[in-house]
Design a protein around this nucleic acid. Structure first.
Lengths: 152, 152
DNA sequence: CTCCATCGTTGACATTCTCCACGATATCGG
DNA sequence: CCGATATCGTGGAGAATGTCAACGATGGAG
């Protein structure tokens, strides 16, 4: 008998709390990114592009972000139009296009990370450092255990 | 110096993990609710209506769920059309309409809760019972600490 | 070479978010 | 009691997001 799933009130349901907390973080992050012309989605794509020196496949972006590949197309389009990333052909597979961050992309990321970090920090203010680590660990295992197809 | 906010990779960011985990839960829950003609939103409204014997104000629903009041209108419309809830005038304030679950609403909830519980349980399978409680506690404090305007 | 899978892309459609505005009602100050 | 102000439910508009199906181009297996 699972101890949690039958929470007798909605506000104690893990799924509901996840959705609610996620909403709060998304709004706070979007607000922090407003002045940079980014939203949380494009920001995530930019970060992933910055983190992969060789570039990321759009298919990989879709899997990591849990999005439909067709959404990734638009996000990359937007970032490319802004000059933050570029699509580079892969010499190993001509179907794929590697998304690579430009110098401007790296620069904007460096700035935005500070703002986003502050916003996230404010949301986490009620938790101690240890609890924040614990939460991250639990969420990470939750995501990686189910559909979340990204490296450990 | 906050220990978490400056996660060096996106997949270690608490905000990202929250969003990702939330997405997984929402999809799983929607799949579980498919046969009942409900989605996670209307299901949440139904639960809140069932939990309040005297009914819930649409304004309260919006606050608890973190939604715009105009969205609540449509959700209640949908549930009312299905005969699961009804709008009852409040004798203390004629502006408000109390959303009350019907007998059919209570019955459907009883069934759906089982399915949803199983789906949530599957998502939480990688965590021990203690960890599930811990996660719920952390998320609850996160939500209640920030915008989440619902009782402790 | 042929058959089938994969990648990026496009299009269509439903759902969800965000804001603004309105009529009806409540509340507060005088 | 009256008027200014706020709140509740509702409607509408537009953007953002989610979901699905299809297509051309390429890769890989046999």
């Amino acid at each position: 008998m699972d101890p949690i799933t039958n929470a007798h009130v909605l506000t104690d349901d893990v799924g509901f709390l996840l959705s609610r907390a996620s909403g709060l973080f998304v709004r706070a992050t979007n607000a922090a990114l407003l002045s940079y012309g980014l939203r949380v989605r494009s920001y995530s794509v930019l970060l992933l592009a910055c983190e992969a020196a060789e570039g990321v496949t759009q298919r990989d972006l879709a899997e990591v972000l849990g999005l439909d590949p067709s959404q990734v197309v638009l996000l990359v389009d937007e970032l490319a139009d802004s000059g933050l990333v570029e699509r580079r052909p892969s010499d190993s597979d001509r179907r794929t296009k590697l998304v690579v961050a430009t110098a401007a992309g790296h620069a904007l990321r460096a700035e935005a990370v500070v703002e986003v970090g502050a916003a996230v920090s404010a949301q986490l203010a009620d938790l101690t450092g240890t609890e924040q680590f614990l939460l991250r660990d639990l969420l990470g295992r939750l995501v990686r255990g189910n559909g979340g197809a990204f490296p450990a």
